[in-house]
Nucleic acid binder design. Sequence first.
DNA 1: GTTAGCATGTAAGGAGTTACATGATTTT
DNA 2: AAAATCATGTAACTCCTTACATGCTAAC
Lengths: 197, 197
Amino acid sequence: MAKTDVLSLAILGMLAEQPLHGYQIRKRLASELGPFRALSYGSLYPCLKRMLTADLIAADEAEGEAVRAGSSKRSRIAYRLTESGHQRLADELASSTASAWDDEAFDVRFSLFGKTDSATRLRILEGRRTRLAERLEQVGEGLARQRDRHDAYTAELQRHGLERVEREVEWLDKLIENERSAPRGTGNHTASAGDNN
Amino acid sequence: MAKTDVLSLAILGMLAEQPLHGYQIRKRLASELGPFRALSYGSLYPCLKRMLTADLIAADEAEGEAVRAGSSKRSRIAYRLTESGHQRLADELASSTASAWDDEAFDVRFSLFGKTDSATRLRILEGRRTRLAERLEQVGEGLARQRDRHDAYTAELQRHGLERVEREVEWLDKLIENERSAPRGTGNHTASAGDNN
DNA sequence: GTTAGCATGTAAGGAGTTACATGATTTT
DNA sequence: AAAATCATGTAACTCCTTACATGCTAAC
């Protein structure tokens, strides 16, 4: 079973809502996910190409404007999910195995929680929490072992890094508690109203 | 003037304190910098090789244990800065031009603040702050423009991301204020005492 | 009519990872 | 004597970026 990389998954999720142009996909990636990285076209279009080849998405040549006679003009291309694309997304949404616990993968996976069932959400949140706790522990060990060869700035950097991770764990704890007390199902009906690009 | 990548800079800074083996360099990178990435040997050794070629560092074959007759045994190699290595580090420490404002580059550069003069520290902190403020602004625009096509989870992800950046700005503000009120010089004398690997 | 933003793509290259290959030293 | 950890390195591959190349469309 071919595996889905982070970027492809993000795109699958986006196109499940509505067809989009490459350009629009890029913009939404930049704004919708945390302060997600604005990825470059040199990265995006090859990915779309791979997804086309894999038959996860299909390309529709521009709407009203028919391809005007003979001239080799590229026009805007709207991408939409194919049947296997929908299937692949559903598979991914049901699983938490594919380490969705790295920083970036977690963000993408989290942004799809609206389409994910409660049990899976919980598994992913807990997996992420465990991952961060491990990180915390390792750093703690490091601190203990090297009892301060550090100057003030290095120490401050570490303290700050540690604090950031601790806060993220607290955030997860809140989400986990919330999920346990009110485990509503997929419940997703964000009527995708007025468009704006 | 050849430019110094982030990893090379981190290594230069580390070796300025004392000679180290590749293995030790890796461990310190993993623990000393924030929760810095534990980078792989497949990345580290090629970098050391490049630095050798560029004459920034020199390799000393293991200490006491002389290379025992004929046998092709690799033993531990201690790396130390050469004259040009020291020079390069000094150059880097004096400049803030080379965008030390990205997440990772900033961390590395910050960890060298003990060897950096007050004016340069201030320039770097302010540059970083500006960078983050820009990010904040962009995200804000994005939020305003797309007035919520978002489900609750996506919104929460954005809120959390925003909060994280805001906190980082506050952290920088504190450091900047501190730096302005007490701009002591390089003042670095962390007597590198008892070793421990 | 010119600028700004929309739109799609390719080629070269940078920076890192995983997996492999090898062997020495220290601890249990 | 086995296991853990120290220690060095290479090859193949992944994922992303920058710079280039092209052209349309709306606003000023």
